[in-house]
Design a protein around this nucleic acid. Sequence first.
RNA 1: GGGCGGUUAGCUCAGUGGGAGAGCGCUGCCUUGACACGGCAGAGGCCACUGGUUCAAACCCAGUACCGCCCACCA
Length: 879
Amino acid sequence: MSAHDAAHDSGRELPKAYEPAEVEDRLYQWWETSGFFHADPGGHGEPFSIVIPPPNVTGSLHIGHALDNALQDAVVRRARMRARNAVWIPGTDHAGIATQNVVEKQLAAQGLTRHDLGREAFVERVWQWREESGGTILTQLRRLGASCDWDREAFTFDEQRSKAVRKVFVDLYEQGLIYRGNRLINWCPRCVSAISDIEVDHSEEEGELAFLRYPGSDGSDGVVVATTRAETMLGDTGIAVHPDDERYAHLVGKTVRLPLMDRDIPVFADSHVDPEFGTGAVKVTPAHDPNDHEMGQRHGLPAIDVMTDEAAINANGGAYEGLDRFEARRKVKEDLDALGLLVKVEAHTHSVGHCSRCGTIVEPRLSDQWFVKVRPLAEQAAKAVRDGRTAFVPERNAKPFLDWLDNLNDWCISRQIWWGHRIPAWYDADGGVHVLREDPTPEEAEARGLTRDPDVLDTWFSSALWPFTTLGWPDDTPELRAWYPTTVLVTGYDINTFWVSRMMLMALRFMDDVPFHTVLNHGLVRDRFGKKMSKSFGNVIDPLELIDRFGADALRFALFRAAAPGQDVPLAEEWVEGARRFANKLWNAARFVLLQLGDVTPADGLPDTGALEVEDRWILSRLEACRAEVEAAWEDYDVAAASRALYHFVWDEYCDWYLELAKLRDDRAGKLVLAHVLDVALRLLHPLMPFITEEIWRTLRRTEDTIMRAEWPPATSVRDADAEAAVEAVQEAVTELRRFRAEHNLAPATRIDVVARASAARRAPLQAGVDGIRRLAGVARWSWADEAGEPAGGVGTVVLTDAELAVPLEGLIDLGEERERLERELAKAEAEVKRAQGKLANEAFTAKAPPQVVEAERAKAAEWADTAATLRAQLDSLS
RNA sequence: GGGCGGUUAGCUCAGUGGGAGAGCGCUGCCUUGACACGGCAGAGGCCACUGGUUCAAACCCAGUACCGCCCACCA
């Protein structure tokens, strides 16, 4: 048996430094195999549920996941401790285009494309990839301490979820909320698929504004138009000008000659045109621009699609057929220039849309696609938010969400890829559309001449159903009845529109209720300077590496300390290191406590009030203050505030003062308090730092139970103002004496004597704390001037609130230094007197401020005047 | 163009009406019987600017400047 095991077997000793790696692996396995993460819909307690924002099955844990999931874990752990019937459901998203890209890349390495395999074999291959290497992120979540109910793992593309998708699609189609239409969509030529509006990322880019002349059909000068995409002129079917623009009034109703294509196109007036921009005349390409499409519809223009799926020019582009869009852009300008029709070219920055999956420049394009009619659904969602049935934390995030819902365009849900839920639509020989609940048999299909729509659904279509499909919908399950609506959705504000909105739309339609009562929005994790993390900056932090080096608790705590709701979270390695130091501090405090306790455990309860010393009452009072602060912070989901409160309590109050004072004692009451306070602090900390708190708690309580099921500390009524005032008096005396010692360079081993004077009110607390003051400030003898007499000879003077301490010099300190020190103190006291008196001299203040404020100011003035007088007397006696 | 944040110590941030705070960094002292992943003491801020409200403003109101984010059909 190793020394370490032996230490562990004794049950009450801990290694000198906290070693997270060993503890975390061991505890996580124990938690998981013991079923502590599992919840049953029939279990006791008020239901509480969270569904994970499903990470892409291709993903691996990045720092943003770490924050999101650490938050969920903290929330659900606290709920369990509060005896809620709490479940956290994990799972992954099949991530259509992203996953297809991964496998296509593998194929490309073998010189193959998906078309070489064929659809069926390709999809089979993706499934195989998913079995082998998909979902590693769920394993990585365990490193973080995530207490997911792994028995309930779901996948957006598994059988149950696919069943739900099919039902939703068919229902919405039958309700007229899904339709097939020829509309302008965003097309990614690399993915060879439509994508939705929100899958387009816009960026400002340097481009060229080309001014092209279209001569009049009658041989006149015609018009000059400005464009950034010259190649689209091949599909122009009109020219638009503003109705009030007199420059062009004579042309409206006439036609101009489209160069290169030799077509006549009409000039018309439309108020959409901005006369200030470019030349005030706009070329109109209804098949390739959203505005032009709308104008085209208003004015009955034909739409001519001039591009192929890969964004090369098609047969409609005449001589340019086969050229890539960018080549065509160059060539068109070149040819127009040769014809003398390229008037000029200006540099121009404009917004360019890119595919969010692959970065390729998106092409607006007229296309046959499937759409969800969102307006009726969005109204429901907006109403639910306005009624507060779903609340945002922070609240301010509701407004942009509502604005967005109000201006929603129909959602393009079809994708021309292979990996995803196949659209359940068939076309017959006459072009009739059949949306079917069940696949037809091959015989049936053949008999009716049905061919299936080749497209699959947008990945977000299935993730929009996640809050209820993970609970078993469309079946009527106990899980749904117990846990729907879910309690809180934890996610970054950056996907409120992508995902949160769509869950709202779908849930209100199919569940007739909101998907979650609260949306907890956190921010983005940034670097130490608040900069976004990105590979190109080289400032990306790997959470797994941080866990390896500092422990999961440290990473979590570092994140939590900055994670106020809605706020971005700056993170640097040193801050995780700082959190590890806190963990180590807690660890060593526990070691000390265990050393002190003997056979006492927290289960022995608290001593009778009569047995409590003043510092006992103080720490219990401070503990209650801390608990209340943590509780209030949790009410707002403000883990940053909760973390701060606990850090401060554990380090600055429990360790720095209470443990130091406890070193004087060996009484049972002290031990009981020592144990109790640590026990409560551990429970309050557990949601934030699950591992170290479990390890210490089990040792402290000598138990085989888990802190995961321990009681969340309830409110107590032990705030004790007298005890707090008393210990504050001790703290002031200790701090001031230490400062005195430091300023006189007294060696730590040097003991000083103190002769004290105090007001009647101040004397008792100081007297009560004399032993502590002596120990913590290096005082050999403490006496009261009225009992032991004034010290003879020179003294140094330490001024406290309503008290002063004389320190006989006896050659210990330098008289000149003491004089200078006293003069500094005096200057400060006099400044305070002046400030307070100035305020009191203001009649408006004494007349209008609340009496207690005025009274407090009077007391301060008197106090500081006293102090100043004492200091003056001491200065006199020194000379 | 619209909306939302922010501006407090060298850095990152707390602090919502009565004498400016934390972590990290920095300076000095200290291997004191849990912890050097530690202890003690300290230096360091006209709380962006301008007005206003108030007896009293980092905090409330208005405006200005700068930074950041989101949204929008800037040809």
